[in-house]
């Protein structure tokens, strides 16, 4: 029986950044991975969980398990949501659900599961890699994303001290403390601009929503790109 791979598209990607999800599909299909997408999927529950609404988050965790349990593998273009499912569902559900260990962040799936480092993509310019905090500290760190980007021809990855700093999004933190949250993003963007970077590439669109939202408001010239867009060659 062939392996069933389910796509998990985070709710805000579905609603606001569908091109990121389409890019992820393109990358996977090009590698011969046939994905399924169950439209009953919604949100992993992280916003509620991080805000202290654990009862609500637990209900969404149950929903997630119901939707995704049928797959052998679940792939998501969003590191933060994957970390949520892998590392926090246990506490919410009060039990181990085997499916949570079968959920992969896109880069991790490519490098560790499919053993692919080089997608043959190209993009010219200088970029910083911003790995979301939960992916950096709870998943596989920045290794998989770095390996993939190192093989993008024409792309120069520049290491900055600010690479590991939080972008300031933090879910509802970003609306509870808008000025503080923006200041955290600004400090990162400033450093990128000082190093004359063209792009900030991330395996998580929520960080890019934050960095990009401030860049647009304040006129920073650094362009946010999801790693799936880069790997799929869908940067225009």
């Amino acid at each position: 029986m062939p392996m069933r791979v389910g796509l998990f598209i985070p709710c805000y990607v579905d609603q606001c950044y569908p091109h990121v999800a389409r890019a992820a599909v393109r990358v996977l299909e090009r590698l011969g991975v046939r994905c399924e997408y169950d439209p009953r999927q919604t949100c992993c529950g992280q916003p509620a969980y991080n805000s202290g609404y654990w009862a609500e988050a637990a209900r969404l965790a149950e929903h997630f398990v119901r939707v995704f349990d049928k797959y052998d593998c679940v792939v998501a273009p969003g590191g933060s949501c994957v970390a949520m499912v892998r590392h926090h569902y246990r506490e919410l559900l009060g039990r181990d659900e085997p499916v949570t260990a079968r959920v992969y962040e896109l880069c991790q799936f490519l490098t560790d599961h499919l053993k692919v480092d080089d997608l043959g993509a190209s993009l010219s310019g200088r970029a910083a890699l911003h790995v979301p905090c939960h992916m950096l500290r709870e998943l596989d760190g920045d290794g998989p994303a770095r390996r993939l980007l190192d093989n993008v021809s024409g792309l120069e990855l520049v290491d900055l001290p600010s690479d590991t700093w939080c972008c300031g999004f933090g879910g509802t933190f970003s609306v509870k403390f808008p000025e503080l949250s923006a200041a955290m993003a600004r400090r990162k963007l400033k450093q990128m601009e000082e190093h004359r970077l063209d792009y900030v590439v991330s395996p998580d669109e929520s960080c890019l929503m934050q960095l990009g939202g401030l860049a647009r408001r304040e006129g920073f010239g650094v362009r946010p790109l999801h790693i799936a867009e880069v790997l799929a060659g869908m940067v225009n």
Partner: peptide, 25 residues
């Protein structure tokens, strides 16, 4: 709501004309 507080300091992303779910369908 939260969007307003978001917009106090940053631009909000537009909702896409077509969701991924619709595109997939």
């Amino acid at each position: 709501g939260p969007g307003g507080r978001w917009k106090a300091t940053r631009e909000l992303p537009p909702l896409a004309a077509e969701t991924f779910a619709d595109w997939w369908k």
